[in-house]
Design a protein around this nucleic acid. Structure first.
Lengths: 335, 335
DNA sequence: TTGTAGGCGTTATCAT
DNA sequence: ATGATAACGCCTACAA
C-alpha cells in the first residue's frame, strides 16, 4: 500500500508538503494541493493511522467498558442502544471505538490499565457502578479522560457523568396519571441500594407533595425486578381496604406481574387501574395490554457521554460535569 | 511513561536485549532476563502497542461490524451475547476489539474500508447479511481475513462463517414433541426470504418424514415475527376441523400471539396444545406460561467466530470453512 | 510556499 | 548472549 513517500515522489514534492496538505495547513498553494490530492486518489492512498498515532502520541481510539457479569444491572437492556449512540459520535470524530469487558484481565491488571499502558486508548466511557476510587486513581494517574454512564454515588472526587433524569421522569409520570384522573398512586419496585431507584422514588414523593397529596408508606413497595414479586405485591396492594388506582412500576418485569394480578382480580386496565413502568420497549409492546412507559432515550445517553468525553479529550482543562437526559411518556394502553 | 530505552539503560543492557526478553527469545541468559523483568516492574513499563504495531505491521485489533439499521434482523436480540463471546476470545489473544456500525461512513467509503486503509484492523467479523460480493472484493483486495456470522447465501466465493444449526434445532424440537405425545405439529413463522427460517422449515419437514408423518401444507404458515400475526394464524389454525396439537414458532413474538389465541379458545397449554419457540430468554421467561424453547448458545457462536478469525489471521493459507453451532431444548412450561 | 532531517518506540538484521 | 543500527510511516521544527 502506498505511503506518504510514494505520494510525494509521484507528485514531485517532499513528504512534508504531502503531510501538510493532508492536515490542510494553510500555507500550501492551491496548485500543489490539487496535484497531491489527485495523486493520492490515483494511488489509493490513506494515511497510516498507526504511524500517525506514534508521532502524535494519540491512539485515535476510545474505549467503552462493559461489565458483563453485572447482567442484571438496570442498564443492561439498554446497552446496545447506548453503544450505538456512542458509536455515532466517535466515528464522526474519526476515532474508533474499542469495547472491552471489565473482567478481561491481562496478567493481573484490569483491561483498562492494559489498554492505557499499551497506549491503545485516549479516553474511557464506563458504567458508574465500576467507578471505584481505585479505578479513578488509575485513570487520573495516566491522565486518561473518562465519563461515567450513570451518576456516581459516594465518591469524593468529582467526575464527568451522564445519567437519565429519573426523578423528573417519575414526576412526569405522576403528573400524567393525575391528569388522567388517577388519585391514589402507588410505587412498586423500590430498591434502596440503587441510586436510580431512589431517584425515582424521590420523583414520586415530590409529585405527591406538589399536588398536596399525602404519602402513604404502604403504597411504596420495595421489591426485586421480577414478574413474581411484582405480582405478589400487587395482589397484596389490591386487597387492602384503601387500594391504589394507579401504579408506577420501576421496571417492566414488575409491570408484567402487576398486570397479571389485576387480571386475576378482574380489575380492568386502564379503567380501574392505571400502570406506568420504565421503558423496555420489547417487553412493553409485547405485553397485553401494552404498557405505558417512561421513555428513556438511551441512544442520546450514549451520544452525550461520547460528546462529553471528547470535550475532555480536546480540552484537558475542561471541568467535570454531570448531565441529566430527560425522559418522556410513551403512551400505550395501560394508562 | 517509561519506554524500552529507559528500561535498557536502567538494566545496563541494550534495547535489543530488552526487546528480546519481552518477546521471550530463547537466547537470553536467565540472569539478565530476571534483572530486566525487575527493572520493568520498577519503572512500571509496558510496551507501547502502537510502536509495536508500526514495526510489525499489525494492528493487534479486530473489528466487529454491526448493522444497526437492520434492527429487525433475527440476530439482533442476541447481539450482546455474540459480542461477549467474541470479546472473550479476542482479549485472550491480547488483541482489542473494535465495534463499528456499517453505516458510519467516512468520506464516502465504508467504515470497513476506512479501518482497513488506516491499518486499524487485522480482521473482521460481520453479519452474513451485509456480505455482498463488493464487500468481499474489498476484504480480499487488502488481504483482510474475515468471518461471517450466519451462513451466507447465493455467494460464488467461499468464505468462513459460523451459524446456528437451525435445521437440527428444529428437528430436535420435533422429536421432543413427538416424545411428549404430540402428533399433529404445525410450523408458524416461515419467512422464505431468510435462510435461517427455511432451514428451520427443513428441519420440521425432515423430522416429519423420519417419523413417517405426512406433511400438511396448511400446517405451515408464513408470517411476520409479530405477536399480532402469530395470534391471527393461530386462531385460524385452531378453528380448522383438523387442528394441530402442537406448534413450533419461529420466534418468541409469534409464540406470544399463539399463546393468546389458545387462551381465547380455552385450550390449555401444554395439555391441549404444545408450543416451542426459538430462544429469546427475556421473552420466554416473562411469558405466562413460560415458553419452552430451542436454546441457542449465542455466546458460543461469537466465541467460535473469533476463533475462526484468528486461525485465518495466524495462517492465511487456512482454507475457509463453515461451522454450525448446535442447539438444545430449554424446557419451560409450554411443552 | 516548500524542503531537510530528526524523532516517536519497537523489532529485525547483522555483527561481535 | 548481546549490541549497534536501520526501518516502519508520519509529523514538525528549522531552514531556505
Amino acid at each position: 500500500m502506498a505511503n506518504i513517500k510514494d505520494v510525494a515522489k509521484a507528485a514531485g514534492v517532499s513528504t512534508s508538503t504531502v503531510s501538510r496538505t493532508i492536515n490542510n495547513s494553510p500555507s500550501i498553494s492551491l496548485a500543489t494541493k490539487e496535484r497531491i490530492f489527485s495523486v493520492m486518489k490515483e494511488l489509493n492512498y490513506s494515511p497510516n493511522m498507526i504511524a500517525k498515532s506514534l508521532t502524535n502520541n494519540k491512539s485515535y481510539t476510545v474505549t467503552l467498558i462493559v461489565d458483563v457479569e453485572d447482567e442484571k444491572s438496570y442498564q443492561n437492556p439498554f446497552f446496545y442502544e447506548i453503544m450505538h449512540g456512542i458509536e455515532r459520535h466517535v466515528y464522526r470524530k474519526e476515532y474508533s471505538l474499542i469495547v472491552a469487558n471489565l473482567s478481561s484481565t491481562q496478567k493481573n491488571q484490569s483491561v483498562i490499565e492494559w489498554l492505557i499502558k499499551g497506549k491503545r486508548t485516549d479516553g474511557v466511557i464506563l458504567p458508574a457502578s465500576i467507578l471505584s476510587s481505585a479505578m479513578i486513581e488509575i485513570l487520573r494517574k495516566y491522565n486518561i479522560p473518562f465519563v461515567a454512564i450513570g451518576e456516581p454515588v459516594g465518591l469524593k472526587e468529582s467526575v464527568s457523568w451522564v445519567d437519565v433524569d429519573n426523578k423528573k421522569g417519575t414526576e412526569n409520570a405522576m403528573y400524567y396519571l393525575f391528569e388522567k384522573g388517577y388519585r391514589n398512586i402507588g410505587f412498586l419496585g423500590l430498591n434502596k441500594t440503587q441510586l436510580f431507584s431512589r431517584k425515582r422514588l424521590e420523583g414520586y414523593k415530590s409529585a405527591l407533595s406538589d399536588e398536596q397529596h399525602e404519602i402513604d408508606n404502604d403504597f411504596i413497595r420495595e421489591c426485586m425486578n421480577t414478574k413474581k414479586e411484582g405480582y405478589q405485591h400487587m395482589i397484596d396492594l389490591l386487597q387492602r381496604d384503601h387500594r391504589p388506582d394507579a401504579i408506577i412500576c420501576a421496571d417492566s418485569h414488575i409491570a408484567f406481574g402487576a398486570i397479571k394480578a389485576c387480571g386475576e382480580l378482574h380489575l380492568r386496565i386502564p379503567e380501574d387501574i392505571g400502570i406506568i413502568s420504565y421503558d423496555n420497549s420489547q417487553l412493553a409492546e409485547i405485553s397485553d395490554p401494552e404498557i405505558t412507559t417512561v421513555y428513556v432515550d438511551v441512544f442520546e445517553l450514549g451520544l452525550q457521554s461520547a460528546k462529553q468525553l471528547f470535550e475532555l479529550i480536546e480540552d484537558p482543562q475542561k471541568i467535570d460535569q454531570g448531565l441529566l437526559i430527560s425522559t418522556s411518556i410513551k403512551v400505550r394502553e395501560t394508562a
